[in-house]
Design a protein around this nucleic acid. Structure first.
Lengths: 207, 207
DNA sequence: TTTGCGACCAACAAGATTGTTAAATAAATT
DNA sequence: AATTTATTTAACAATCTTGTTGGTCGCAAA
């Protein structure tokens, strides 16, 4: 029942910290609570990670990376035709967010409450934008030239996609009754909402 | 410079509390900080509002009401034809959120971190849904029968609208660079994004 | 064996934060 | 004016929270 290998405890603490920070944010999180959840004295927590702040950094760095990585999923497979590419991209992004439902709000909250992080996030975003988005933009432009779809700025389109996906999953807990009978079970609702989001984006580019 | 009428101080405290709670949330807010911002000793804060919690309730009640009220704006003017009605509804909702940009995140965070509020919010939402949405749904159904637009569940449509509007404004601070040159000034970006959101929704129902 | 070193814990320290209270002051009521 | 009531203040209390410290335990290298 006891885990007393040296690295084991560090991992336990990290796992507990992730839980705590993701669900309560930096301010709401308590190092004692993290320690308890990890099955360690709170002195141990300070032994492995000097301060609450440094422990938080560890979590936040990983989560920011994960968040950006998820944006990449939207780009989809360049070998597919544009419409298929978008379909699978939206679907992949939706699934990712559904399985990491606390991630978006965590990132948004922590970056908004720490303007000193703006620069970092903005840089990474800019890289994403210039490097990855341009390929999809080309695909879109070409398809538009062929008259298959409508002209549109890929950044606007991607923003719509992440808006629709993230918002649906974040607000699911209290949107459920608004949807009424449709929202009996989480899975059912999510799959319907995913289909609706795909539909919305495809309509947007339909000729 | 001093406001020493009795009711004045209470209002000062409420105003300061609103600022503090909206930007830092319940956990991040400090009663001493609120008191200082209001120009009162922190004992005064406890004199007027017994506890931090009760002060918070005052703010949260008002903000929840405001939030739901803003959803109503989306319904729009029933005397307009459906497409016009949606256009003005989306625009009104977008403007409201833009002028209350801290509201959505505040409400989402506080309701999610307090499941005991789920029931309350869910009830109010259900009322909105049954009472107000049905009118718009009728309009949509009729227009769809006439072949002007496509059939769609109004709840899905409204969820898309609030997703697009809220997300755009909440994430504006760090989405700006992703948009690049487009996002030089806030006003410019917001008006472009508003237009894009309207476009997206209209495409969704276009035949 | 003993020396050293990392993991570990109980207790403590310092400061922040919410909340109380007793007394002073102002305002209103009789 | 006298009495009550509301407002205000300063000081304190209780608790929580982060962080430290001195010392213990086990184990491996010398």
């Amino acid at each position: 029942m006891k885990e007393n290998n040296k690295q084991g405890k560090e991992q336990e603490i990290l796992a507990a910290a992730e839980q705590e920070f993701l669900s309560k944010g930096y301010e709401g999180a308590r190092t004692t609570s993290i320690a308890k959840a990890a099955g360690v004295t709170h002195a141990m927590l300070h032994y492995y990670f000097r301060t609450k702040e440094s422990l938080f950094e560890r979590i936040v760095d990983e989560k920011f990376r994960l968040m950006l990585q998820s944006m990449l999923a939207v780009i989809g497979d360049p070998s597919l035709p544009v419409v298929e590419r978008l379909k699978s991209g939206i679907s992949a992004h939706f699934d990712f967010v559904a399985q990491n439902s606390k991630l978006p709000l965590f990132v948004i909250n922590e970056v908004l409450s720490r303007p000193e992080r703006y620069a970092m996030l903005q840089n990474k975003m800019k890289n994403l934008a210039t490097d990855l988005f341009s390929g999809l933009q080309q695909d879109i432009d070409n398809a538009a030239e062929r008259g298959e779809i409508v002209h549109i700025d890929v950044r606007m389109l991607l923003m719509s996609i992440v808006s629709l996906n993230i918002f649906a999953i974040v607000t699911f807990p209290f949107m459920r009754p608004l949807i009424g009978e449709l929202g009996e079970e989480r899975e059912r609702f999510l799959s319907q909402r995913k289909a609706e989001n795909i539909e919305t984006i495809l309509h947007r580019i339909k000729r």
